[in-house]
């Protein structure tokens, strides 16, 4: 009985998380567009897969991603080597971003826009190298963002000055960047933080802030993801200006 509940409870939780999507889609399909739901069986099977997947993911977070992120943060704090910690931060940011599928998609679109706008030649080779350059630029900026974020936690700098400074940078860059790149640059800030990176980076930040004396995990532990979504905007606009 106890076992059954241990399996059923996370599933019910996931189904509750999914309920809004189902309600919205059903309402607009039936009441607004007034069309029947196509292929109901497929819809139900899909929803069940999503629910099982979400339940497994959450369990995996609790026993895998969170503990490893935190234990590494503690280990680095005990070791006391800032250089290695920053190197790790950079590798984590760069490594997780450069292969990110959403980023690959956005970089491809950006290359197309640039080719149509006559910024680069309209052939596969130039588009390919433009897209690759953009991916490296974004990955570099995310690596740098995590480094700055970790430094902030170590030093206890207040986050608002850094973020406000960053936004000021975005605003200034927007005024000078070519118009076609602006939308893509803004979107690239959102696509860099994947579903696996976010829990790891959050656990790292919170773990660091709890293991360093004088830091409060609530005030200082969060914010790494904020940097990771801010710097790509600046770097992508800079990249657009170089061409």
């Amino acid at each position: 009985m106890h076992r059954l509940r241990a399996i059923a409870q996370p599933l019910l939780d996931s189904l509750r998380d999914l309920a809004p999507i189902i309600v919205v889609i059903a309402f607009f399909q039936l009441a607004v567009l007034q069309r029947p739901l196509p292929d109901l069986e497929r819809l139900l099977v899909g929803t069940l897969l999503v629910a099982v997947g979400l339940a497994l993911f959450v369990r995996g977070l609790e026993i895998g991603l969170f503990p490893i992120g935190e234990s590494m943060a503690y280990a680095f704090a005990r070791k006391g080597s800032v250089l290695w910690l920053l190197l790790f931060a950079f590798a984590l940011g760069f490594g997780t971003t450069v292969a990110e599928p959403a980023l690959i998609a956005v970089a491809g679109e950006a290359a197309e826009v640039a080719a149509k706008g006559g910024v680069i030649g309209d052939n596969p080779a130039e588009r390919g190298s433009y897209a690759m350059g953009l991916r490296l630029t974004v990955a570099l900026s995310v690596g740098l963002a995590i480094v700055i974020g970790v430094l902030r936690i170590l030093r206890g700098w207040p986050i608002q000055y850094l973020i406000v400074g960053g936004y000021a940078g975005v605003v200034i860059m927007t005024l000078f960047a070519p118009e076609e790149i602006v939308g893509i640059a803004y979107d690239s800030g959102g696509v860099t933080t994947s579903t696996i990176t976010v829990p790891l980076v959050t656990a790292l930040g919170v773990g660091l802030a709890s293991s360093i004396k004088g830091r409060n995990p609530m005030v200082d532990g969060f914010g790494l993801i904020a940097f990771a979504s801010l710097t790509p905007m600046i770097f992508v606009m800079a990249y657009g200006m170089m061409f």
Partner: peptide, 15 residues
């Protein structure tokens, strides 16, 4: 945990 995350995400995306 990593395995759960992998399988969970894959099921989630396919669904």
């Amino acid at each position: 945990g990593f395995l759960y995350v992998l399988v969970g995400l894959a099921l989630f995306l396919v669904g």
